[in-house]
Each structure stands twice: as structure tokens, then as C-alpha cells.
């Protein structure tokens, strides 16, 4: 039995690392703004069912295409549904799908990329040629095909996007891992006679966590774009679940009559993705620095 007392210490160490990343994020103004935007969105995503004034399918027959008012803060759509309610609820599904899909992508793509870099040789060469070929087919097309064949259940969307973004994560993770695979501390571990799984888990992966973290943030933002675009095209999150992408599509033709149904979902979606990217950008900048200089001596 490995001693349990090591666990809190490990935890403290990794928390220390997170705290450090957090501090460097906060140091950049862009990062702070991005983080605040993301936190607000996450709060809304979690809390919206309890704070929205109507149900998303409630129809106010007298008020169709209404402009914002006290009764309907964002106005109503062509059916007379409350836009405030629908906008607050409209991110939940997309955000959930994007976060899970990005997690799956980084998990399998990242792991495979790291393993390929570590194994090297012919296996690496053959698999990478295959990955290159997969990358030659536009990712959204693959997703479209699979979704059309298998349906638009959340699980399908998540797995499909997770697969598509995983393919490109392989490249990134492999590239980052290659920088370490040839380094002396890995050579030292090999010369010591460490088992391969130990080398990957103990020596290699801790050095790649930050790359994978940045990768996760970026993939999450792209997956959000992708799922919203799919919904816009009619292949994503299906009605009646409210969704920003679909709302833009539904209300776009009425832009001349009443822009509110398009404008509010657009603002919600764009602000979230911009927020994620601002935070992700600051994060990678913070990590790209020589962190050894930051450490207290």
C-alpha cells in the first residue's frame, strides 16, 4: 500500500500549481475580463432554470415580435415566446455539449498524441499519416455525416465532436510531447529501468498538463462554435430545447421587422466565446513564460 499521507501533499502541490496559473491569469487585464465573462455565463447556465420568469415554450399570443419591455425584458419572438427566458436557457445545452466534447477530445487525443511521441518509430509514422489524412477532411463535414446517420441526441453530438476535435489534438499533444521525449530526464528514467507506463505517467504527463489545459480551453471554445453552427444549420441541438444558434436561424429572416430575437442570442454566444478565448489566451501566455522565475526561492 502506498502511503496515504502522500495524497494530501500531492493535492496541495497540484492546488499550488492551479493557484499559480490563476495568479498569472489575474495579472493580465484581458485574462481577468475573459474570466469574469466566463464565470457569469457559467453561473447563468447553472442557475437559469431557477431565475427565468417564464417557461421557454410559454406563448404570449398578444405579444408577438414585441420590443423589450418590463414584461419581456428582451422582447418576444414570432410565436410570442419570451426571449429573455430563451436566451438565458439557450446556452445550457450547447455549453454542456462543448465542455464534455472538449474533455473527451483532450483525453483521447492528448493521450494518443503523447503515446505516439513516446513510442516513436514506425508506429508513430503510420498513425500520423492516417491522422494527416483524417485532417484533410473538414471536421464539420465529418460531424455532419455522423449526426445525420445517428441522430442529434446529446450523446451523439458529444461523442462526435469529441472524436473530431480529438484528431487535431493528437497533433498538438504529440508535438508538445516530442520536446520532452528526447530530454535527459526521460533518458534517465529509461536508463534507470523504469517501466514505460511509469515514464509516461510520472515523468512525461506532468510536463504536458499545462499544454493540455490550454488545449482544452481552446477546444471548448471551438466546440461551442461548432455546435452552435450545427444548430444554426439544423443539425445540432433540436427544438424544442432553446439554443442560441437555432434562435439566430429562426429569427434571422425577421431582422428587418424585429432584430431582438437575433441580437440577444448573438450577444450571448459571441460574448461567451470571446470570454473563453480571452481567458485561454492569457492562460497560454502565462504558461508560456519561464515559470521557474516565478517560483519563490
Amino acid at each position: 500500500m502506498r502511503s496515504l499521507s502522500a495524497v494530501p501533499k500531492r493535492l496541495a502541490q497540484s492546488l499550488g500549481w492551479i493557484a499559480q496559473v490563476w495568479r498569472s491569469l489575474r495579472r493580465s487585464r484581458q485574462g481577468t475580463i475573459g474570466l469574469i465573462i466566463v464565470i457569469v455565463h457559467m453561473f447563468i447556465a447553472v442557475a437559469s432554470p431557477y431565475i427565468v420568469p417564464y417557461a421557454h415554450h410559454d406563448i404570449d399570443g398578444k405579444n408577438r415580435l414585441a420590443a423589450p419591455s418590463a414584461e419581456h425584458p428582451f422582447g418576444t419572438d414570432s410565436f410570442g415566446r419570451d426571449l429573455f427566458t430563451r436566451v438565458l436557457l439557450g446556452g445550457r445545452a450547447a455549453i454542456g455539449v462543448a465542455l464534455l466534447a472538449a474533455a473527451i477530445a483532450v483525453l483521447w487525443g492528448g493521450l494518443l498524441g503523447i503515446l505516439l511521441a513516446f513510442i516513436g518509430g514506425r508506429v508513430d509514422e503510420v498513425v500520423m499519416r492516417f491522422v494527416d489524412a483524417l485532417l484533410a477532411i473538414p471536421g464539420l463535414l465529418v460531424v455532419l455525416l455522423i449526426v445525420v446517420a445517428l441522430g442529434t441526441e446529446f450523446s451523439v453530438l458529444i461523442l462526435t465532436l469529441g472524436y473530431a476535435y480529438g484528431v487535431s489534438t493528437i497533433r498538438v499533444a504529440r508535438g508538445a510531447a516530442l520536446g520532452f521525449v528526447a530530454s535527459d530526464f526521460i533518458t534517465a528514467a529509461r536508463a534507470r529501468g523504469e517501466r514505460k507506463t511509469n515514464i509516461v505517467l510520472r515523468e512525461l504527463i506532468p510536463n504536458l498538463l499545462d499544454v493540455l489545459l490550454v488545449e482544452y480551453v481552446m477546444r471548448a471554445s471551438w466546440a461551442l462554435t461548432a455546435i452552435s453552427s450545427l444548430s444554426y444549420l439544423g443539425f445540432g441541438i433540436a427544438p424544442p430545447t432553446p439554443d442560441w444558434g437555432r434562435m439566430v436561424f429562426e429569427n434571422q429572416v425577421l431582422l428587418a421587422v424585429s432584430p431582438w430575437g437575433t441580437l440577444f442570442p448573438v450577444i450571448a454566444l459571441a460574448s461567451l466565446i470571446i470570454g473563453i478565448n480571452l481567458a485561454g489566451d492569457a492562460l497560454s501566455k502565462a504558461i508560456g513564460l519561464d515559470r521557474s522565475q516565478e517560483a519563490p526561492t
Partner: peptide
């Protein structure tokens, strides 16, 4: 190894 920066896992 020659360079301890490279031979110790950072």
C-alpha cells in the same frame, strides 16, 4: 548528465 536542467524533471 551534463545539464541538470535537462536531467531533472522540472
Amino acid at each position: 548528465f551534463q545539464n541538470p536542467d535537462a536531467s531533472l524533471n522540472p
